[in-house]
Design a protein around this nucleic acid. Sequence first.
DNA 1: CGCTACATTGATGATTGTCAACAAGTGTGG
DNA 2: CCACACTTGTTGACAATCATCAATGTAGCG
Lengths: 264, 264
Amino acid sequence: MSGPAAKALRARPVASADPPAAPSSVTPLKPPNRMRRQVRRGETLFGAGDTFGTLFVVRVGFFKSLASSANGQVQVTGFPMVADVLGLDGIDTGFHQCDVVAFDNAEVFVLPFAECEQWARETAHGQRMLRRALAREITRSHDHMLLLSAARAEQRVAIFLLDMAERHRRLGDSRSRFALRMTRQDIGSYLGLQLETVSRLLSHFQREGFIQVQGREIALLDFPALWRLSGHAPDSHRPMVEPILDPQGNLTVVADGGSGLTHM
Amino acid sequence: MSGPAAKALRARPVASADPPAAPSSVTPLKPPNRMRRQVRRGETLFGAGDTFGTLFVVRVGFFKSLASSANGQVQVTGFPMVADVLGLDGIDTGFHQCDVVAFDNAEVFVLPFAECEQWARETAHGQRMLRRALAREITRSHDHMLLLSAARAEQRVAIFLLDMAERHRRLGDSRSRFALRMTRQDIGSYLGLQLETVSRLLSHFQREGFIQVQGREIALLDFPALWRLSGHAPDSHRPMVEPILDPQGNLTVVADGGSGLTHM
DNA sequence: CGCTACATTGATGATTGTCAACAAGTGTGG
DNA sequence: CCACACTTGTTGACAATCATCAATGTAGCG
C-alpha cells in the first residue's frame, strides 16, 4: 500500500532524502492531492486487525469508528468527519484496533505512514503535526471518559449535540441546523446509553423547546438551555491548533524553513 | 516545578545536547540515572495548567492521575506505576491536562521533552518509543472507555482487580496478593462508580470466596471466577512491547546503530 | 486518647436498561 | 404501482442497577 518510497525510507532512518531531489532543503510530505481514496457508503476504510500502513485524513464524508473489546463487545468511539485524522490507533501494535466505516460516500487523503515518519523526522513541523494528532486523540479520549463516567444521560446527549454543532460550525456549516448521519443506536453506543434513552431524551428536549428533531434532522433552538444541561460553559471547547485542511479542502503541508507557507 | 533543566531546554528546542558531549555519533537520550526527581507522598508531580516541558517515567512508587472537566468535575484517569510514562497529556497544548499525585514516596526519571524530540528525530528507536508511548495511551483510553460505557459495576470491579494483578505480575510482584494504594473513592472515580458500590462489591466478592479483602490488602483467590465476572478471557491483556525499564530499574535507552544495546 | 479520614453496611429512591408494541421510512420484487 | 420485508425511530410499562443518604465501625496519626 505505501508508495515506493516506503521501504527505501525505512531502511535508512536518518540521512538525507533520496528520491527526486527536492527543490528546497526539505522534501514536503508529497503532492497530497494525488493520494486519495474513495470509500462508499457503508464500506469500511479499515478494520480491526488490518495491518497498519497509512494514516488518513478525511476530505469528504462522515465516518464512525468502532472499538471492540476482548469479550466481543463493540462500541462507537467517535464520529470522524472532515479534517479528522484516522488510523492513529494502529501505530502502537502495527495493526488497527478500530473499524472505521463511512456513513456517506466519502473520500480520504492517504498518507503512507513511512512518509509521515520521514516528514516528522526531517521537519520540525511534521514532527509537531504527528505528535499533536496523537496527543489530541489522548485528550479527546480523556474528555470522553469523563463524560462516560460522570455525566447523566441528559447531560451526555446535550454535550453530544453541542459537540456536533461545534464541529459543524468549524467546517463552515450551520451550527444550529445539521443532519445526524448516525442512528440512535450509534449515538447511544458512543454515549454509553441505550438507543431508547437517546430517543426519549431527544423527544424530551423537543418538548421543552430546546431543539427540534425529525428523524436525523436536528435544529438547536436554545443554546443557553443546552449549555446549562451539559454543565459546560458556552466556550468550553478545546482550541483548534493548526488545522490540517485549508478552506479549499487541501492538505496543508508546511515546509520546515518557511514560517507557515501552505503547500499543495 | 520541573527541574532547572526545563526552561533552559525549552529555549533551545533542537540543537546539540548541552552538558558533557556525547561520545558516539548519536547522542543517547542522556545519562538517565542522573535526571531523577523525588516526589513525596501526597505531592503532585505536575498539575493541570502547568507548562509542559518534560516527560517522566516512574522508577519507584504509585501515582494517580486526575483529569478535570470544564464544569469542575474531577475524575481519576489512571493509576500509573513503575515503568509507566507520565506527562504525555501535555504535548498537545503545551500545558498539562492532568494532575498526577504520588501515593507513596516516589521517584521518577525526568526526560526533558526537547531531548526526547531530538532523540526521536535522530534515532529510529527513539521515534518508535515516543510514538508508542503516545499510541499506547490511546489504546488504553479506548479500553477504558469501553469499560465505562458497556460494563456493569460487578464487571468493572473484576476487571480492575485483574488489571492490577496483571500489572503487579509484570513488575515481578505477586499477582494474587498486593496492596491497593488508593482509596475506595479513587477506585470508584476511576471506574465511574460510587465508593459505596465499590466497597459493596469487594465485600460481595469476598463472601463468594473470589477474593480476600482487608482494607487495602487484597488477595485474589479465584482467578477463573474473576475472569468470568469480567467477561474477558484469561489472556486478554494487551501485549507488552519494548519495556522501558530493565529489571534493575534503569531506563533502557537504545542507541541507533546497535541492535538492542541497553544503555545506562 | 481522641481526631480525622477511610471503609462498611443498610434502607430507599431515581435513573436508566429491558421488553414490547407500533409507526414511519426505504428499498425490492412481483 | 403496490405489497412486502427490513431498518430505524418512538413511546410505554416495568424491573434492575446503582446512587444517595445515613449510621456505624475501624485504622492511622498527632
